[in-house]
């Protein structure tokens, strides 16, 4: 096999191989705890949540932005939904209104993020960091630090706890979100425009693309997916609390970056991000089984992000190195890049 063929082979199969390797390693390290049905189910639940959030959080990142507020937004939407359900006496109508209200709040938050990011020269990480705290504060205020229990009605519990053909409902919701995001990114005009704006904002504007609109929609999608995850979480736990999704943004961010999305925009895919989510889910599970306390997770994940981003930046920089005159410009497409 020539070198080129070997490289192509490696690129295509790298991701599944890494996953396989992880599963094997963890089965060896924890032969009693890891390969059990129960454990797989809990992995599946966790990955569903990350995955749903990833489906939305990828949009701002494709625009070279970021949404750090997704954890708080998820919690807020869960709380809003549950509180509405309780207000309407656990009726079916309450469930619909609750979900609608929760998602509406997310749309508003995303709209604000998008408008600020589109119209002002404020770094997205700052906007969404401030928003993370602001929304968290609102959630705390409204729930008064209390955990709001919500057992039922069945229409609501089925979202988080229900099963179909053996698989938990969140998996189907994840599948739905993934398919929607995949279609949106790969097969719609909006998706094309998103990659264009992320790849070269000025060229996109000169091509008649409404850059502001694309930005606003991207942030709305991010918040809405966070909201969906929050509602699923509330249903799963049968309760809602302001801290329910605290820290999720770290995992989601790691998943997206490890999955091949560039921080500088214009490059990345849902498949890659989902692979990242799988990886992060497995990693979390493994660390937990080995009784590694949760703050070591931060340590390891922190290092993972650093490595992933460092690689991404190095590959971009080697192209940008001071080349003279008018030479060919080499664009490296990492596995999962959109072409």
């Amino acid at each position: 096999m020539s070198k080129m063929m070997a490289k192509g082979f490696a690129k295509k199969f790298a991701k599944p191989l890494i996953l396989l390797a992880m599963v094997v390693v963890m089965s060896i390290l924890q032969p009693k705890a890891f390969p059990t049905l129960n454990n797989f189910v809990s992995i599946v639940y966790a990955i569903s949540l990350y995955g749903i959030m990833v489906c939305g959080a990828i949009y701002p990142m494709l625009l070279a932005g970021v949404d750090l507020s997704i954890g708080s937004v998820a919690a807020m939407s869960g709380c809003a939904t549950v509180m509405t359900i309780i207000k309407y006496d656990y009726s079916g109508k309450g469930v619909f209104l609750g979900i609608a209200f929760g998602l509406l709040l997310c749309i508003i938050v995303g709209l604000v993020h998008g408008l600020i990011a589109a119209n002002f020269n404020v770094p997205p990480f700052l906007i969404t960091l401030a928003s993370l705290n602001l929304v968290y504060g609102v959630a705390q205020l409204v729930t008064n630090f209390k955990t709001i229990g919500c057992v039922g009605p069945p229409i609501f519990s089925v979202i988080g706890v229900g099963r179909l053909w053996g698989l938990p409902a969140p998996v189907y919701i994840l599948a739905f979100c993934t398919i929607c995001s995949y279609l949106l990114l790969r097969h719609t005009v909006f998706g094309r425009q998103l990659y264009a704006v992320g790849g070269n904002k000025e060229a996109a504007a000169l091509s008649g693309i409404n850059v502001k609109l694309v930005t606003v929609i991207a942030y709305i999608l991010s918040s809405v997916c966070a909201g969906i995850a929050g509602i699923v979480l509330a249903s799963m736990n049968q309760q809602a609390v302001a801290t329910s999704a605290k820290g999720y943004e770290a995992d989601v961010l790691t998943a997206i970056v490890v999955g091949g999305t560039s921080l500088m925009g214009g490059e990345g895919s849902i498949q890659g991000a989902l692979f990242g989510a799988l990886l992060v889910g497995l990693l979390n599970n493994g660390l937990r089984l080995m009784s590694v306390p949760s703050t070591y997770h931060l340590l390891i994940k922190g290092i993972c992000i650093i490595i992933a981003v460092a690689f991404d930046i190095r590959s971009k920089r080697s192209d940008d190195k001071k080349t003279e005159g008018k030479p060919l410009f080499k664009v490296k497409t990492s596995a999962g890049g959109m072409n």
Binding site: E202, A204, E267
Partner: peptide, 21 residues
């Protein structure tokens, strides 16, 4: 053309189709 004309990471196909959706 580099800064304003095309999106370097996108394919020829996508760049050509960019204004014709």
């Amino acid at each position: 053309r580099r800064k304003q004309g095309f999106v370097p990471m996108l394919s020829v196909c996508k760049n050509i189709a960019l204004v014709s959706y």
